[in-house]
Nucleic acid binder design. Structure first.
Lengths: 185, 185
DNA sequence: AAACATACGGAACGGTGTTCCGGATGCCAA
DNA sequence: TTGGCATCCGGAACACCGTTCCGTATGTTT
């Protein structure tokens, strides 16, 4: 038991994390494995040992931000004048996060096996938060009550795709329209 | 002049079109070039000669359906009880088209150079139709007047991504919510 | 039938992700 | 300190992918 990890292994993992973060900023989350390896001064095998799938690497890089977003849900609910306002603000947080990570929104709903874990992680962590905000708003009659967190998160994620690609497309605005469409009739 | 095309060239082009259509149904619009070539009993060079980019091939395969969708716009506008209803129906047409083509929605907003033409073709053909429906609805005060066709088409295309992937995500429903969000406040 | 223009096939190239294993390296016990 | 072992590393190698290119084959015209 307690098979403590070798020091160089842990060191490489941290180096890799930093290199990946830098590469993601420079070339998006699709940055070639070899490029990340080179940036870290490491062989490609080392990447796969620490992060078997690309999803593992992406999750590791953005975990803190996702966590922060998840935790902001209850906070906003408590601090906002209404659940509907809180929902709007929280969604904005999520959109801002996605929009500033090149290719992340695209990767999130890719059907490639390597991205399944990524999809699962984001959903597991954020859907419950979204659902609770939705429920609170629905309980007050502010929005329709037949919308579930999964579907809304999925849709918002999709709307963020191509956000940086065309200057004529404003993902934030379209998400707002979507949220507006949630209002009870 | 009148350098008439060789008979075998035209024959191959048609064979290729049929093979591509079949391959798209079987494996989505990302079907490997070699797979399409094999299906047509042709070398890969022949594909590139007739369809320099993948977008050219996709456009050729779906041109008729896109055209039909575009032409349905004015028809629906004339036949519906209100512009807003016509808009909803027309968008549904577009969504049905996209959702039944594996990977097409994804390809539509890919930033890869090969797909630029695809993006451009769809937009050139459908945005004006969408814009006229939007304008008609806005003129009657049914919807907000600050929405343009491009942005709406872009957003609807995005919402169609992953439509077949998860049974829990219903693209048609989310598009309806988006359209509902367009209503004038 | 000959000669020419055109189109074809598929090998070859550069770039991906992913696997695999001989060799180097940290770690611990003696 | 040193020996030996488990762990970890590097990068070559493989399997795909899109794309290009040119010797060869095939239509077309004279």
């Amino acid at each position: 038991m307690t098979p403590r990890k070798r020091a160089d292994a842990e060191r490489n993992k941290q180096t890799l994390l930093a290199a990946a973060a830098a590469a993601f900023v420079a070339s998006g989350v699709d940055a070639p494995v070899r490029a990340i390896a080179a940036r870290a001064g490491v062989g490609v095998g080392t990447i796969y040992r620490h992060f078997p799938t690309r999803a593992d690497l992406i999750v590791a890089v953005y975990q803190h931000q996702v966590e922060a977003c998840a935790e902001a849900g209850p906070t906003l609910l408590a601090a906002s004048s209404s659940p509907h306002v809180a929902l709007g603000r929280w969604i904005n947080l999520f959109v801002d996060f996605l929009v500033t990570k090149h290719g992340l929104a695209e990767a999130l709903q890719s059907d490639e096996a390597a991205f399944q874990k990524l999809h699962a992680y984001f959903l597991d962590r954020l859907v419950p938060v979204c659902a609770s905000l939705l429920e609170a708003a629905a309980a007050k009659g502010e929005i329709r009550d037949d919308m579930d967190g999964f579907e809304l998160m999925f849709a918002v994620g999709n709307l963020c795709i191509g956000a940086g690609a065309s200057p004529r497309y404003d993902a934030r605005r379209m998400v707002e329209v979507l949220i507006a469409g949630l209002r009870a009739r």
